[in-house]
Structure formats: structure tokens, C-alpha cells
Amino acid sequence: MLGNYFEKGDKSLSVYEAYGRNPIIFNRVIENYKKGLKLQPKNILYHYRLGYAYHLMRRLMEASSEYEKVLKLDPPCLASETDLKLASKYAPRLFANPKEFFKLKDLVAVIHPKQPIIAYNLFWEDDIDYPGDNDPSDHEIVWIEFDQKSGEVTGIYTYFHMAILSTEEAVSDANLHHQRARINVQWGEHGSLPLRWEELHPEVIFEKISKRIKIKNMAQRYQELSKSIKSPFHPLAKDWPKKFTGSYKDFINFSKNIELRRLLKKKKMVITSKWPNAVINRYFLNYNYFPKRQWPKYPMEET
């Protein structure tokens, strides 16, 4: 029965994320997770998933409460000098469009305690399409996987509008540049792109419900954004660009370098934990952000 509650909650959460934020579906997520946790109150994974679900709905007090339970049961390790050096070593080379309006305001590097992978959580000032979503930021992620013996990068994964992108060329290029991956950032919406992204067909996979959803590619996003952003007349967007001006070639110009190492050195937001959203929420940021999935390759149950 216990497994059934958690499994039902997982499936409902996938439906909620895949088909739109239906409050009826969301209530099923919460109901099943709570029933499961009543029977197994020290289940860290499902306290985390319950917190994540609340976070998706911006029910922040409840999300924070669950995150605190997670971190009490599985405390993180604050960064040592070795951790700071590790995060700096693999910090990606970030390149934005020269017309990018928003600044990158925060960077949190979360080192996995058991697997050789680091999640670089990027927080931009906002998303060009969502001025009124009550999230004063735009959360994106780049994951860098590495070999602990050789130090070589073995995997690069980027978050692009719910899809996870990865290419072998990005890995090869990183190792040619002292283990620092080149990541390009889409104008306005900040989807992160690995090298040779042009050859990919982005889609998001919801394994729990056997569903694949195609994601708009860069050409399609250019067609939309070159006409208008989604809410050009929103009061909070009064000083924002109303559209991308320029050709598609201009849109995919990623020549503005943003030095992540400088931001890491300045703010030192580095920590070791399996639970990135929990540590970001409880240790680092005093503003809300829309949470993203955690690890691209390792299921949470296996880490």
C-alpha cells in the first residue's frame, strides 16, 4: 500500500507537469504523498518530492517546511576550500546574446555527495515572457559530470524549457578548454544550449506516464519572440524589450561572455547535497524561483 501511494503521487505529478497545472491533479499529488509519508515519516525522497510539489504551486511555507525535514534527515555539507576549487574548476564558459536584457544575478553550485556531478543553478533577473508570475528570477541549470580519477569531463547536460540536452561534441570541447564546457544562453528566456545544439530535437520525457512532448526549437522561438513577448503590456514589463529585434542569425549570436568563476568567488554559494532545491531554498536565496528537476542522469532513488 505504501508504494502505491508514492507511485500514484509520482504519476499525478507527471500528469500535472506534462498537461498543465490542474489544481485537481495537484491535490492528488499532495494527498498521495501525505498518505505515504504518514506510514513512512522518515522517507527523505518523498518529503523532498512533497516539498517540490508545493514549490511548483508557490506554496512556499509548506515547501520550506518539507525541505527542512529533508535536510534534517540528510544534512548537507557546507563548502570546504576543496569544494570551492572543484566548483570553480568545472564552472562552464557561459555565452549570452549581446542583446540580452537581464543580468545573471546568482549562481549556486550543488555538488552531488555520491556521484561525480555538479549542478550549476543559474538565476537570471527574470524571464522575458513571465513578468507577473511572482518569481523575481529565472532558474536554469547546467550539469557537469566528470571522472574523479582523470579529471576529464564525461557528460554535459543543460536545461532547455523542460528538456535535457546533451551532446558528445560539448564534452570533447570542454576537455579541450581545461574541462570548462561552452554553454550558450537563449535571449530572454535563458534556455541553456550545449555545443552543437543545432542538431538536437528537444523533447521532455515523463517516464512515469510514458509520455514524450516535443519542445519548440530555437527557430520556432525566434519566430515567436521576433513578433512579440507574451505580455508586452504588463505593468512590470513596461521597461522591457517588447520583442527581439534582428534576424535569426542575430538571435543565435552568443558572443557575450559571462564569467561564472567571478560570481562563484564573490558569493561562494557552493554546497554538497543530493537535494538542490532544498538547499537553495533554505541556505542561499531569499527570493522565490520556479524549481527545476534535479539530476539529469541519476534517478533520485539510486543516488
Score class of each variant (00 low, 15 high):
H161L: 04
K69E: 13
I141W: 01
R59E: 15
D127A: 05
I144F: 02
V70Q: 06
L165C: 06
R58H: 13
K103F: 03
L73Q: 09
K35R: 15
P75R: 08
T82G: 06
L84C: 05
M61K: 12
D147R: 07
R93I: 11
K42Q: 14
Y46T: 09
E145M: 12
F101C: 02
V153Q: 02
T154W: 04
E81D: 15
R59H: 10
L71G: 02
H161I: 02
Y48V: 02
K72P: 13
K72V: 12
K99N: 14
V110N: 08
Q40L: 10
A91H: 11
D138F: 01
E31A: 13
M57F: 01
V70T: 09
G155W: 13
L86S: 07
L84V: 00
A79Y: 01
R49L: 14
K38Q: 14
K105M: 12
S88N: 13
Q40K: 15
D127Q: 04
L107F: 07
D126Y: 08
C77R: 11
D127R: 03
L60G: 03
I141L: 08
K42A: 05
V108Y: 00
E125I: 00
L71C: 05
P75H: 07
N32Q: 14
S166L: 00
K85G: 01
A163C: 09
Y159F: 07
L94A: 03
I128S: 10
L45H: 04
Y67G: 03
L107Y: 02
K89W: 14
P113M: 10
D147C: 09
Y120L: 07
F102T: 01
L78G: 04
A96D: 06
W124M: 04
R93W: 13
D83K: 04
P92A: 05
K38A: 14
V142G: 11
E81Y: 08
P92K: 14
F146K: 10
L45Q: 14
H139Y: 15
F123A: 13
A96Q: 13
N32E: 13
K42E: 14
K114L: 14
S88G: 10
K34W: 01
P113A: 07
N97E: 08
V153M: 08
G151W: 12
P116M: 15
